[in-house]
Write a protein that binds this DNA or RNA. Structure first.
Length: 258
DNA sequence: ATGTCACTGTAGCAGTGA
């Protein structure tokens, strides 16, 4: 059983990459962020033909948008953070009816926050407050839970190409890192860190300044698993392959295997 | 502060968000 998170930076622009990547990596569940399209534009038929019979979509014009594509049935779909008014489409919670047992999957496109002190940063903090309570409630209902997506947080210094130079800048602030640790405190584990990983493992590289070529990246895409799932995790890895393709997303897919 | 990319509205480029 494999579950992947991938910020595709426009599904319209990246559909062929998604098809090519899933053809080579037929994961059970692919969680997408930054669709940048409305629900009616979601290529259901094409993805169904690719084996993803079950899709939950929460789109938005131009910005944001998340989806879960699955080879197994989905149920109990919840859009956004319960009790948190939000104009953005950023969170999708679903239950995957996998053969080895159901799993709750919470797929998020976390707020970027632009710059500490900005209005957008304040929104990020509020959103993260809401998310924590949403996940707490979800976990009370679902012992087997996965929280994944584009967190827009580099949790530790080793998750950044320049932790000193970027100290307390966006993705690196103490407040953001505290929020990340609070999520872990709910009883979640960063599956990527359960395993030995190459040094300077990142999931995102700026399009500018030859970011990828110089490996000037951040690890901001994460897969957290609940304690009940932790003993079942076999692997977690970033796949940099599609970042090398023509006109790539700035993010690489991250996959957990159970 | 950003040399890139995707998108929108209104046009063949400027503004926004990342």
């Amino acid at each position: 059983m494999k579950i992947t998170t991938w910020n595709v930076n426009s599904l319209t622009a990246r559909l062929q990459h998604v098809l090519d990547w899933t053809a080579a990596n037929p994961v059970d569940v692919l969680c997408l962020q930054e669709l940048k399209l409305t629900d009616d534009k979601f290529p259901l038929d094409v993805l169904r033909a690719a084996g993803y019979e079950h899709c939950a979509v929460f789109g938005q014009k131009t910005y944001n948008g998340v989806a879960v594509m699955s080879r197994h049935p989905l149920k109990d779909v919840v859009r956004n953070i319960t009790g948190f008014e939000d104009e953005h489409s950023r969170l999708l919670s679903v239950t995957v009816d996998a053969p080895a047992g159901a799993m709750r999957v919470v797929n998020g496109y976390f707020v970027n926050g632009q710059e500490p002190g900005s209005e957008k940063f304040a929104y990020k903090m509020k959103w993260l407050d809401g998310l924590r309570e949403h996940v707490r409630a979800e976990m009370a209902q679902h012992e087997r839970l996965v929280l994944l997506g584009d967190f827009n947080v580099a949790p530790e210094d080793r998750d950044s190409f320049d932790p000193e130079g970027l100290r307390e800048t966006i993705h690196h602030t103490t407040e953001e890192r505290t929020h990340f640790r609070e999520l872990l405190s709910l009883g979640l584990v960063d599956s990527f860190r359960m395993f030995e990983q190459p040094e300077k493992s990142f999931s995102w590289w700026d399009y500018r300044m030859l970011g990828y070529q110089k490996n000037r990246g951040l690890r901001i895409d994460h897969i957290l698993v609940s304690e009940a799932l932790k003993p079942l995790v076999k692997a977690c890895a970033v796949d940099r392959t599609p970042r090398k393709w023509k006109q790539p997303s700035d993010h690489a897919p991250v996959t957990v295997e159970f």
